[in-house]
């Protein structure tokens, strides 16, 4: 009788385990505290730079800000590299078979575009800062242009921070 109970219990455990196989899933990368902290730091540096350049800045003043540009862009590139090289859960690759995911995310070309969105968003923020740096160096910046660069940067960095913070679950 005891043997029967043991066999029944064993079968129940096996059945439950099989039933719940693949029951918990991971579709997106794990939360990376250092990445979020690095993005926060870069964002703070960039906002300080935008604030200092408010009202515009001449070409001759570029040298004053050269190091601020380099530090901010360098930090962002390091964070972009960190986000690009992290592990993507294997199950995420299957998402590209879902029509809306492949259409929205160019998943056919890049399966990670919607499950690891921040590298492109950080790339957009870097693009803005590098273009602003070149413009400042070559021609100087008007107040008008600083506004355009700041809005482009803020939009991109806010997206990256939003998705990275959402990974804390």
């Amino acid at each position: 009788m005891n043997l029967l109970v043991s066999v029944r219990n064993f079968c129940l455990i096996v059945f439950s385990a099989v039933f719940l196989t693949a029951c918990t899933i991971q579709l997106v990368p794990s939360y990376d505290k250092e990445l979020v902290s690095g993005l926060d730091t870069a964002n703070e540096k960039a906002l300080t730079l935008f604030s200092a350049l408010g009202g515009g800045s001449t070409k001759s003043e570029y040298s004053t800000y050269k190091d601020d540009y380099s530090e901010t862009v360098g930090k962002l590139k390091a964070m972009q590299q960190r986000a690009e090289t992290r592990q993507i859960p294997p199950l995420a690759k299957r998402l590209k078979k879902i029509k809306f995911v492949s259409q929205l995310c160019d998943a056919e070309d890049d399966a990670s575009a919607c499950v690891n969105a921040s590298p492109r968003q950080i790339g957009s923020a870097i693009d803005v800062l590098e273009t602003m740096q070149r413009t400042h160096k070559d021609n100087g910046l008007s107040d008008d242009l600083v506004t355009g660069f700041e809005t482009g940067f803020t939009t991109a960095i806010q997206q990256a921070l939003f998705v990275e913070r959402a990974l804390e679950r």
């Binding site: 998402l95 575009a113 499950v115 690891n116 968003q121 959402a166 990974l167």
Partner: peptide
């Protein structure tokens, strides 16, 4: 759009 899609997947 990708941020919203990623948030939806999360």
């Amino acid at each position: 759009v990708r941020s919203i899609a990623m948030h939806t997947i999360i």
